Amino acid sequence: MTASSPNVLVILPLNDAQRARLEAGAPSARYTYVAAKPGAMLGEPSAEQVADADVIVGNVDPKLLAGAGALRLLQLNSAGYDNYLAAGTVPASAALACATGAYGQAVSEHLFAMLLAMLKRLPGYHELQRSHEWGDLGPVCTLAGANVLVLGTGDIGSHFARLCAAMGARVTGANRHGGEAPAGFERMVTMDELPQALGQADVVASFVPSTAETRGLADARFFLAMREGSYFVNGGRGDLVVDRDLVAALEGRHLAGAALDVTAPEPLPTNHPYWDAPNLLLTPHVSGGFHLPVVLDNIAGIAAENLAHLTASEPIRNEVRH
């Protein structure tokens, strides 16, 4: 690789405008685009293409990286990067960068729509429609004046907070360190203050990553600390939740409802209790992905920025230690 003309392998389904945005980051680079097969999100490069690449843009199969001797940058299309952290997966000489900042709009809008659907009993009315029944399901809730607690105040959590605030909610953010409240939040608390904050919230929404501290955090004690009749939303990682404890909180009517776009495991087994849990709205981890075109716009922009940084020997945005 020369500093000015890396060989860039791209496995994302970019359109012409997105390709132009990406290539603006390193105009003299050589770009190879691998089209995805029907039904697939990403292209499947050959071992030879991976071996020849100085830069890969997209979540390539980790097993192929064993032959990536020329690699200098792996730019993931995901915010998560767990599959690439095992020792020796990414060559030591290569930088690993995630796509944090690309998904805020897409994920927050999806989870916000799920929350509003629950508050207005829309899933129940859809069931009435399917059974050809004309019925009234009773009172509904509003976000105007509601207390919303958002766990995780990064890109996605901040987008979600702004949507709730626009509806008149009072939004509290929770993270490890507290600090000054970003736009959309009225105040911040630390995770150590979570038990009290849970009891004050009408809605608890989580967008935290999977860490030793967050895995299993939403357990029976967590849900019991939540206000009776409140709602739980999870768009972060499925392993935050102890499944049986959430189902029990819904079956016991302590929670009024829950909306999940993430589960552990994924796909969800056909015999999992979530399928039949009362007042649980479930989608199959589709809030992110490339369903909203702006996500690929954002990823192309992040990758272009990092191509420019790479050729200029500057620090990489969203770099992850491996």
Results as ranks from 00 to 15, higher is better:
A277M: 08
E266V: 03
H309G: 08
A259G: 14
L194Y: 06
A166M: 13
P315C: 06
G184T: 07
G288Q: 04
L240Q: 03
N15Y: 05
G257F: 01
A113P: 04
S108G: 03
V107G: 00
A166F: 06
A87N: 09
A161M: 10
V189G: 05
P293V: 14
R253K: 15
D245Q: 08
D297K: 01
L71D: 08
T32K: 03
P209F: 00
N234G: 09
V262S: 02
N271P: 09
L76A: 00
Y33S: 06
Y103C: 02
A53H: 02
A86T: 12
V242I: 15
G58M: 07
I302R: 01
L9I: 09
Y84P: 02
A181L: 09
P6A: 04
S313W: 03
S230G: 12
T89W: 01
Q75I: 10
R215Y: 00
L296G: 03
R130E: 12
M191V: 12
P265K: 05
A166G: 15
W275P: 10
R317I: 09
E48H: 06
G252V: 12
T283I: 06
M1G: 09
L85V: 08
F222I: 12
L85D: 08
M1E: 14
A117G: 10
A183R: 14
A106M: 02
A95D: 12
L143W: 02
C98K: 03
P269C: 10
S46N: 11
G124D: 15
L14C: 04
D202E: 12
L42Q: 10
